[in-house]
């Protein structure tokens, strides 16, 4: 089953168009990444897919249903989950309250206890800090909380926007190890990342986005061995 299908997406901020005919797809159970330089339109792509932005034209299909233009909360109801850039945890709520807020949707309530155990198992650090106010967490812990929060919603598609942003290298590999673990559990993942080597390592397929256009796509191995990608993104 195709989890996400994006066809000919055109998106603009006011009069400035930032995405041009962007098309890609994610199969159920697959891990896909979109890589590209700063300002290429990666975050815009995720914002449009998750309903924060409305496209000028194009079609977004989620598990066979046309969801173009639906508001973010309704897409979340259908199983889309975005871990936003900059984490966006609720600073004045405790760690546990952050996770409880994620079980607001009716379809997430019964599975909350089970999911809570699952994310505490995945991130034991969060269990230790469960009653701490979230704004006191370190960057790495905050990123883990953001991912955990998304996992509480039973996502049918987990989208991650620059999970490595602002993290020390050791934390980057820690966060990506947990993404790898989610992948092994069969979670469908769409990852957007500037940190290309680690992104390719946890993905089955990759798209390269430059200046608002998809310029290259293929399996992660194919993309990693592409001459241009090696020069520009992998520094080899």
């Amino acid at each position: 089953m195709r989890a996400l299908e994006v066809q000919n997406l055109n998106v603009a901020y006011g009069k400035v168009q930032v995405l041009w005919d962007v098309s890609f797809h994610v199969e159920e159970g697959e891990s896909v990444c979109i890589i590209g330089p700063n300002g290429a339109g990666k975050t815009t792509t995720l914002h449009t897919v998750s309903g924060i932005l409305t496209p000028l034209s194009g079609r977004i299909t989620f598990y066979g249903e046309d969801v173009t233009g639906l508001p973010a909360w309704e897409l979340a109801e259908r199983g889309m989950s975005l871990v936003p850039e900059g984490r966006r945890i609720f600073p004045n709520l405790t760690v546990l309250e952050n996770l409880m807020a994620a079980s607001y949707m009716r379809r997430c309530r019964d599975s909350f206890e089970e999911n809570l155990e699952m994310v505490f198992d995945l991130f034991p650090r969060l269990k230790e800090r469960r009653d701490q106010v979230a704004r006191t967490l370190s960057g790495g812990e905050a990123q883990m909380l953001a991912i955990a929060r998304a996992m509480i919603t039973n996502p049918r598609l987990l989208m991650l926007d620059e999970p490595s942003m602002g993290l020390a290298p050791i934390l980057v590999s820690k966060v990506f190890r947990s993404i790898q673990r989610l992948r092994e559990r069969g979670v469908t993942i769409l990852l957007v990342e500037q940190h290309v080597p680690v992104a390719l390592r946890v993905s089955d397929r990759a798209y390269v986005l430059e200046n608002g256009r998809i310029v290259l796509s293929g399996t992660s191995e194919e993309v990693a061995s592409n001459k241009k990608v090696r020069e520009h993104y992998l520094g080899i």
Partner: peptide
Amino acid sequence: TRLGLALRATSDDMQAASLLGINV
């Protein structure tokens, strides 16, 4: 209450709240 928590979450970050299915 669940509703109260959703209100506080919305107050903290309405975009993040809407991404969790909260109709802000």
